[in-house]
Design a protein around this nucleic acid. Structure first.
Lengths: 334, 334
DNA sequence: CGCGCCTAGTAATGCGCTTTACTAGATGCA
DNA sequence: TGCATCTAGTAAAGCGCATTACTAGGCGCG
């Protein structure tokens, strides 16, 4: 069974294809109501669905935004971010899809042969091998939203995250703070550095002892070593700001296995506000990012590129991260 | 600057557009090497990138597979699954993108106006409102991979998951087992039911006491209540199989806060093998799904639909889930 | 009456590519 | 030599739609 086309509808409604096109696209300005209804009836009767291909080719523009997913660990907040972004873009008449970045760069380049985006969005920076074919295909890009790029490019102020952690700990009277860096993948390298820089700066601003920076894998043994090193340092580290909640929980469990009391012997604060943080004992203090705001900001940036005319979504600024204080810094409250 | 087209290349190489098309698409069977090279040189010189739109329109087929992402909680295994699937499809010459399913059904239907898939893949079943426009647009679908559909449709044998949990506990001598159901969202309802059914059946096959089924939210207070109920039951519940690791950790922490020893007073086993399971104390026994195999299976199903001719990927059967035994069932080993 | 203007549409072109037919010349072979 | 066959390539016809330019007929108005 052949696909139902504009022409079929035109024939059925007794008008020209042009007229049908106008009606279907809402440009029915100077089409009288009666004709319009005839056309719509025919559309409904035949079950006409316009072809995205034909439309894209003729109009010369696509309405698909491709987002290259970050390869970091899964997180509900990221999923929420994606949903927010999708929703905002959809409201503006675009469809947002997510692409898993293949490990093989060559294949990555091949992708644009199949899909036909209005814009390609990437969390981190794309390298020039990846950028060139896009540019040649006339596809604009929005990159460096989370990692890479300049700090103004980023939708989240990562320095502020580190600052918030250290300020929270300083408020509780901690003088000697450690910063736990993750084992860095390409993806979170720049993020980790920014957070650390914020932490160090906050410690400096507050007149605290110099921040001890350690790398802590999400691994029980390594975490134990780090905890031991901190407790044996002089002056003794009394609190640790961790790159993420996963590292923080690892440290928390290592401390407990070493017989230490959290937060009395060591206070711990993570980042991400994973649900996990509420499950462990003691519950984990953390920093929550406002990814709703970040999504709005990213959406605005994208729309500015794909639809420069409309002023669409009002730009939202970066929203500061929020400290979620729980037992691992405040104590059990008993 | 206008986009570089096939015609431009043809002109530069001194051949017809047809020839360029043949060369670009590897159908250069009866094109002599010298001409082929001239064309390829021109392609490189001009930086020609074929237009996906034009190609799709002319060839009448798309090479994009759209997967509707499940709305469940984020998990690394799912991300890995997506990467596997993307990779396999890419190897077969398709691009796989993921779509966040909008809460608003109407908008969902609109999506096919923008994107132009060779196939739409959905974890769970799509309803007819969603299916109809796709059908009309001539887009085949593959649905019910994880939830919904018949059990043969599914890429993962969820019954086997429940069975594996109970058999592991039975092997350790437990007689009275509880099954912890999650607070069900639309997405995991069918999964949860299948797992529970498997658990109940295994208990029956092993001649154990009837399985106690309780619903446990990922919430400390609720979990405490459930744990208390189990310990006070007669006969006493000595082990619990949980729908997922998150519920399991909640139960584990609740037990500890109640002063119970895990697994001595209560053995616990989850599902998913989240990294989290290695961080908590005691470490969490769990069931790992072989999502590599599932991805291969799904990919094969998709390819059978989008490329019925080739026998592409060899079909892989469902692979049984694997018990990862840790401290929460085995004990600390000390 | 004659001119312009508005209404309600239409014809025609082209977006960039694939694909089917078709051809001019070279070659094989009896 | 004459006919078939092969080689190397091309012309032309769309794919389904948007869009621009245009027209036929009706109307107001000086």
């Amino acid at each position: 069974m052949r696909r139902v086309t504009l022409k079929d509808v035109a024939e059925a409604a007794g008008v020209s294809a042009t007229t049908v096109s106008f009606v279907v696209n809402g440009r029915a300005a100077h089409i009288p109501e009666s004709t319009r209804q005839r056309v719509e009836q025919a559309v409904a009767d035949l079950g006409f669905v316009p072809s995205a291909r034909g439309r894209a080719l003729a109009s010369g523009r696509s309405r698909v935004v491709v987002c290259v997913s970050p390869a970091g660990p899964a997180a509900d907040v990221i999923e929420q971010f994606k949903r927010d972004l999708s929703h905002t873009l959809m409201t503006a008449g675009f469809t947002c899809v997510f692409l898993e970045r293949p490990s093989d760069g060559d294949q990555f380049v091949q992708l644009w042969r199949h899909i036909d985006p209005a814009c390609v969005v990437s969390w981190d920076a794309l390298d020039s091998t990846e950028l060139l074919p896009l540019e040649r295909a006339g596809v604009p890009t929005v990159t460096g939203l989370i990692t890479g790029g300049t700090s103004e490019d980023r939708a989240v102020d990562q320095e502020a995250v580190g600052r918030a952690q250290v300020e929270h700990l300083a408020d509780l009277g901690h003088q000697h703070i450690a910063y736990a860096m993750p084992v860095m993948t390409h993806e979170d390298e720049s993020t980790a550095r920014s957070r650390r820089a914020g932490a160090i700066q906050a410690a400096h601003d507050r007149g605290l002892a110099e921040v001890t920076v350690s790398t802590v894998a999400v691994d029980a043994d390594q975490a134990r070593g780090a905890v031991q090193a901190w407790t044996q340092a002089t002056p003794r580290v009394t609190a640790v700001a961790s790159y993420g909640d996963l590292q923080a929980v690892t440290i928390l469990e290592a401390s407990r296995r070493l017989g230490m009391a959290v937060p009395r012997d060591l206070a711990i604060i993570g980042v991400d506000d994973l649900p996990l943080g509420k499950l462990v004992f003691p519950t984990l203090s953390t920093v929550a990012l406002d990814l709703h705001a970040a999504a709005a900001l990213v959406a605005a940036r994208i729309l500015a590129v794909v639809e420069p005319t409309s002023d669409a979504v009002p730009a939202v600024g970066q929203r500061p991260p929020r400290v979620v204080a729980r037992e691992s810094t405040l104590g059990t409250g008993t």
